[in-house]
Amino acid sequence: MSRLHLHLLSDSTGETLEVIAKAGLAQFEDVEPIKHFWPMVRSSGHLDRVLTEIASRPGLVIYTLVNSDVRHRLEARCAALGLPCVAALDPVIDALSDMLGGQKTVTRPGRQHALDAAYFDRVEAIQYTIAHDDGVLSEDWEEADVVLAGVSRSSKTPTSIYLANRGYRVANIPLVIESPPPAQLFHLEKPLVVGLTTSADRLVQVRRNRLLSLNQAPETSYVDQERVAAELAFARRMFADNGWPVIDVTRRSIEETAAAIINLVSARTAEGNGQ
C-alpha cells in the first residue's frame, strides 16, 4: 500500500478539486491518499502559511487559483521544494479556448455530477441532515459525521445543509440556557462536535431581521444585548468544558464555515489513522 500526501488548493471551497482527485485516484490500486484541503486561498499571505504546511508534508499539489500572482508564487515555491504542482483545469480551459477561436474565460467552470455511489451517499446525507435539524432525534446522533452546536441564529442549519450536499451527515442542536441539551451530546464518539459562535452585535442584528421578516415585534428578550451576550457566554463555556473545536462565523460565509469544518474532520481522521 503506497501512501501519498495530496494537497488540494483552491480559491473557493475546493469541491471541484475533490472530485478531480477522487476520479484520478480511482485509476490506481493499493494507494492510501492523505488529503489536505486548503480552501479560500486568495492572498500571498494565506498561501505562505499553506506552503509551510505543504513543506512539512511533501506530496502532489493540485490547485485551482485565479489570481496570477498567487499562482506564480505557488508554482515557484513548489519548484524550489521539488514538488509536482498541477493546475487541474488549465488543459480543459485551454482546449476549450482553442476550439472557441481563442475566446477568453469569463466565468469559473462548474463541475458535472454523476449518478454514482457518491451521489446516493449525498442524497442520504441530505435526508439525514434534514431529519436531524434543530435538535430533533438526538438518539440517532451517533450516526452523524458532524454535530453542530450553537445558540439560535448562529448559522447551524444552512451550514448543515451545505455540508450535507458535500456528503456529510450533520445534526445540529440549539443551545438554550433554560433548556440543557440532551445527555447524548456529551457522550458522542463517532461524530465530531463543533461549536459555532458569533459576535453579540451581529447576532442581535440577524435575530432582529428574522423577527421583522416574520412580522413580529423587533424588541424582545430574544434581541436584548445583555441577554444575547449571556447566551453566547453560556455556549462558549460549554464548548471549552467539553474541548470542542469552535468556529466564529461572524465574518465567514456559509461556504467558508463549511470548509473549516471539513478541514477539522479531515484532521481528526488523519490523527485517528496515525498520520
Rank of each mutant, 00 (worst) to 15 (best):
Y168R: 09
A230E: 11
Q275P: 13
V70I: 09
A229Q: 11
D140W: 01
R236G: 05
V50P: 02
R236I: 01
E53Y: 08
D90I: 11
G110M: 01
D90R: 15
F28Q: 11
M40F: 14
G272W: 07
A200Y: 00
V86F: 12
W38D: 01
T52R: 15
E32L: 12
R268V: 09
N273A: 15
V106K: 13
S221E: 12
A259T: 05
T157N: 02
E142M: 01
V151Q: 03
R236L: 10
D98N: 15
K190P: 03
P174W: 01
G24W: 02
R227D: 08
I161A: 05
Q27L: 13
D11C: 09
W244R: 06
P174S: 04
A76G: 10
A79P: 12
A267T: 14
I254C: 04
D133W: 04
I173M: 12
V136P: 07
E219W: 09
A144L: 01
F120C: 05
A26K: 13
L175K: 12
L65T: 00
H72E: 08
G102V: 07
S266M: 14
I130Q: 08
M1S: 13
Q275D: 15
L60T: 08
P158R: 03
D11M: 08
L203R: 06
R251Q: 12
L188M: 00
E255D: 13
I34A: 12
A114N: 12
L74F: 01
